[in-house]
Amino acid sequence: MADSAVPLPFVNVLTPAIPAGQPVPAVLIHGWASGSVYWEPLARKLLDAGREVWIVDLPGYHPGEELPPDFEWTLDSAAASVAAALDARSAAPAGRSAAPAARSAAPAGRPAVHLVGHSMGGSVSLTLAAARPDLVASLTLVGMAPVPQNQGFKTVLNSQLDQGFFDSGTIAKLMHAWYGDLSAADMVRLSAGFKTPVQVLSASAVAAMSGVEPSVPGRVHAPLLVIAGTGDQVRPMEQMRAFVAENPDRQLQAIPGAGHNVHWEQPEQCAQALTEFWETSWPPPA
């Protein structure tokens, strides 16, 4: 990962009214042109199950955030940014904020978190898990496997990068591929990620299309779950199955009828799959 100083991302910490089970928090990392809003249905289900949830805004994606002028947006630098925030929160004394971006402090000495990354956020999570295994209790990839990107998606993004902005027609096309039919209100809320500064959108789009360095998946030794919608138009199920089949320690949970943003469409099924995975994979056998 990047060795230079990285900006600490914004972290929204949500604490359940009645904690249950393990104290390991779930850290949700969004995909390209997305943000915290699309995690809300899943976060509510996890909170109802007694799980603490941290929702991360990747560098440059939080409204009003200004990145250092020398910050280069890559999967490595984004992963290093999240790792720095996790390090800071674990080191913070109880009751004090670990970083300006954090709303509350985590207990000191917390060893690891359950990473949950969607789409490009899955690539960030894989990169982080490979470089900093000490921070990761488990890893879940949602709507993502580290395989070659859909060529149609790459063609659309490259056309927008060439023209220097993302036009409304392309945004609508992408949103339909990701979510299917949306109400007007949900379209406005969920497409807000496209208001991210174009420099950040462009650089993170290149990162999303490039994907993880080939050695990364093999260097991840945390328990790994893939959650995929059977109707995903971005990452077909055969790609998910092929990735999981490469390693007996990987698991696949297919959600019938759901699309690319399976956590938005089927939050209850996703929450159930996550909690069962965490309960059976962590802590590891003595």
Rank of each mutant, 00 (worst) to 15 (best):
Val188Pro: 03
Ala177Tyr: 09
Pro93Ile: 13
Val212His: 00
Ala177Met: 11
Gln266Trp: 04
Gln160Ser: 14
Ala273Trp: 01
Pro148Trp: 09
Pro256Thr: 02
Trp32Gln: 10
Ala26His: 14
Glu52Ile: 05
Phe10Trp: 10
Val206Thr: 14
Gly152Arg: 14
Pro267Gln: 08
Arg89Asn: 14
Ser104Thr: 03
Ala108Pro: 15
Pro248Lys: 01
Pro267Tyr: 01
Ala2Gly: 00
Ala172Gln: 13
Ala85Lys: 07
Asp167Met: 11
Ala5Ser: 09
Leu115Ile: 15
Arg132Asp: 15
Ser168Met: 12
Tyr61Asn: 03
His176Asn: 12
Val56Ile: 10
Ile55Thr: 11
Gly95Leu: 07
Phe194Trp: 15
Ile171Arg: 14
Ala172Leu: 10
Ser4Val: 07
Ala228Gln: 07
Ser34Gln: 12
Glu72Val: 12
Phe166Pro: 06
Pro197His: 08
Val234Gly: 06
His114Leu: 06
Ala84Pro: 03
Ala92Asp: 13
Arg189Ile: 08
Leu161His: 06
Ala172Phe: 07
Val220Lys: 06
Met144Trp: 04
Met240Gln: 14
Asn12Val: 07
Gly64Ser: 12
Glu246His: 05
Ala137Val: 07
Pro223Ala: 09
His62Glu: 14
Pro283Ala: 07
Ser210Ile: 06
Asp249His: 12
Ala271Trp: 01
Pro146Ser: 05
Gly152Cys: 14
Ala20Asp: 15
Pro111Asn: 05
Arg89Leu: 15
Arg96Ile: 12
Pro214Phe: 05
Ser34Met: 14
Pro41Phe: 02
Pro25Val: 00
Ala207Asp: 00
Ile255Leu: 01
Asn12Thr: 10
Pro267His: 06
Val188Ser: 05
Pro197Ile: 09
Leu141Glu: 04
Phe166Arg: 11
Ile18Cys: 13
